[in-house]
């Protein structure tokens, strides 16, 4: 007799659906595989590759991709491009991922606190974030990087500071819309304490837009990190992230385009991959779009 019997049975059991939804998004799967491969190579850099990324070889400068022994060629100092890309990835991925994760955690905490507590707490947090927000992103990063000594640590700190207001604002907006939902009121009517409601209702509903946003930011931050290196504010030579490689290569762009183009393509591919991953995660994290 019941109305529900008309609804068709669902093919996936609860625990599998998120993965299943993700698995059907081929772009996201491909992006995840690419990122895992590049990330794995970066982590395992010391173990793979026959070459030292910093070892110059004046006899073998500007070898084009496909040259014997150097599958991606060499740069203007005869250093192996593949080795440099793999080692450069260690820095670039670190700069893309670590500040984004840090800023997401801090921004999420501040944003939820502001949106949930409201009042004076909200005012103070948001005004501080507004001040940070008022600076153009790169300018702020340059300022921070300029005060501290250049290096990976500085880059991470400056990008983290830059990102906090972005994540914080998003988290606050998401929190404000979640707290007005009737399910929050239902939970309060059932006797839920403010803390229980925060943890079981507000956080899970705010988390997924943040995760998706952060994933997209990671790609962007690799580009920003590259920009900082390009400006000489990031890692210092001979260590080179992908951005520094592009910067180094541009003086010999005519003679050996691959020195610039290869890291450029890698930056593009990785930031695109993060974007696709973000889209895939958004669908997979939200039960409402998980199935179609």
């Amino acid at each position: 007799m019941s109305a529900a019997q008309i609804a068709p049975p669902r093919p996936f059991r609860q625990r599998h659906w998120r993965l299943a939804a993700f698995g059907r998004d081929w772009a996201a799967v491909a992006a995840a595989l690419l990122l895992l491969t590049i990330g794995g190579m970066a982590v395992l850099a010391p173990l793979i590759g026959a070459y030292d990324p910093y070892e110059a070889n004046n006899l073998l400068r500007f070898a084009p991709p496909g040259a014997p022994g150097h599958s991606l060629g060499t740069d203007q100092q005869g250093r192996d491009m593949l080795a440099r890309l793999v080692w450069g990835g260690r820095v670039s991925l670190l700069v893309g991922v670590v500040p984004t994760v840090l800023a997401s955690i801090i921004g999420l905490g501040l944003g939820i606190l502001a949106g949930y507590a409201r009042g004076i707490v909200d005012q103070i947090i948001m005004r501080v974030l507004d001040v940070l927000f008022a600076f153009p992103m790169v300018l702020l990063a340059i300022a921070v990087a300029g005060v501290l000594t250049p290096g990976v640590g500085t880059e991470i700190v400056s990008i983290t500071i830059v990102l906090i207001p972005y994540v914080g604002r998003l988290a606050r907006t998401a929190t404000l819309s979640v707290v007005t939902m009737p399910y929050i009121e239902a939970a309060r009517a059932a006797g839920g304490s403010p803390l229980a409601i925060l943890l079981r209702y507000v956080l899970p509903n705010v988390l997924s837009p943040i995760v998706v946003y952060a994933t997209t930011l990671m790609g962007l931050m690799i580009v920003v990190g590259s920009g900082l290196s390009f400006l000489g504010l990031g890692v210092q030579p001979p260590v080179a992230d992908w951005g520094a490689m592009v910067a180094d290569g541009r003086v010999v762009l005519r003679r050996a385009p691959h020195v610039t183009v290869l890291p450029g393509v890698v930056i593009l591919a990785v930031s695109l991959a993060f974007n696709f991953l973000g889209d895939g995660l958004r669908d997979a994290l939200d039960p409402r779009t998980g199935r179609r």
Binding site: P182, A190, G191
Partner: peptide, 30 residues
């Protein structure tokens, strides 16, 4: 001793919890 049912039923349920968890939620909160 006193509970409420709202007009907009869908948004009165937590979208990230299954129906079973949603229904059992008051017991858990209590």
């Amino acid at each position: 001793r006193m509970q409420i049912v709202f007009q907009d039923a869908l948004s009165s349920l937590n979208p990230r919890m299954t129906v079973g968890v949603n229904i059992a939620e008051p017991l858990r909160l209590q």
